[in-house]
Amino acid sequence: MLTEPQIQRYARQLLLRDVGERGQEALGAVLVEVALPDDVAAAAAAYLRAGGTEVHGPSIAGSPWAPTPPLLESSPPRRLDVVAAPAVPERSGVIVGSDAGRVVLWSLGETGCRACLLDRARGLAPPDVRTGVQVGSLVALLVQRRALGLASPIEGLEVSPGGETSTLAARPCPHRPPVVPEAVLRALLDHLTSALPDEGCAVLVGREDHVRLVPMENAQAAHHARDPAAFPRTARTAFSLEPRAWLGLLREADRTGERVLAVAHSHPDGGTHFSGEDRRWAAPDGQPLLPGVAHLVVAFSGGRPRTARWALWSDGDFLEIDCPLPSGS
């Protein structure tokens, strides 16, 4: 609960729908570390301190605002870092940079994807300090939105050379694998097990809230039998989605508004990694054949699934991430 002096001090803010007593406590539970050029840092610190948030940093000594006493003395403050490009906050915080005369600000929350932030902030130069007060106020806005729980996992603002502020659109995160319900994962493992000793394959399709498994036939055996010169590998060491089934699946997904989320296949020999062969298939010319589609490799040994790894296209290469298997599988 706020004390009487705090209620008096922050009365105008307490009136705001998004603040109130709990919001004011949240603003006071944040410690902001600012590493920005002097003018921007001083302006940001002034706005933040006026709002009840404590600010530390080497370059804010000139701020006319006295440090605020912490609102919540007992709980450890949540820390947000505000940095100048090309630096990037370690965990959550704000990055300020410039690009062709524009000032660009990105804010990252605890649940935001840091790889996405790195993608978005790539190539940003250190901020131009001529617009110190305006940019400082936007830094404070992004920090306060974060403290109040109003911010998206990643959100951005830009200031045009003419001084106009606009929001920057978020993009779907390509660095996180789809969330697959355990029952679907078990059905996938059963299907891949039934294909042994060959590689098995399947496709996961769905929407955000619903994922389903489409078991696929491995057409590699037929390809190899028909044209062993063009398809030297057998189905023991390679997979190929059966073309008509694959086309039918794409058409159906198009009709139902679903999306292909992932292509899964097995390595019966225990290989846990997205292999060179897998990479050549998934990105034949260094570009992903199926943009936005994840790959899942399930490694078998002794006839049982042992490990699974996602391969996600990120910044010119596949990034591998463990996929926990259901217990008892």
Binding site: Q8, A11, L14, E21
Partner: peptide, 14 residues
């Protein structure tokens, strides 16, 4: 004003 509604709003939030 504005403490009339500040008091009311905080009391409601509690």
């Amino acid at each position: 004003c504005p403490m009339t509604f500040v008091r009311t709003k905080i009391a409601l939030e509690r």
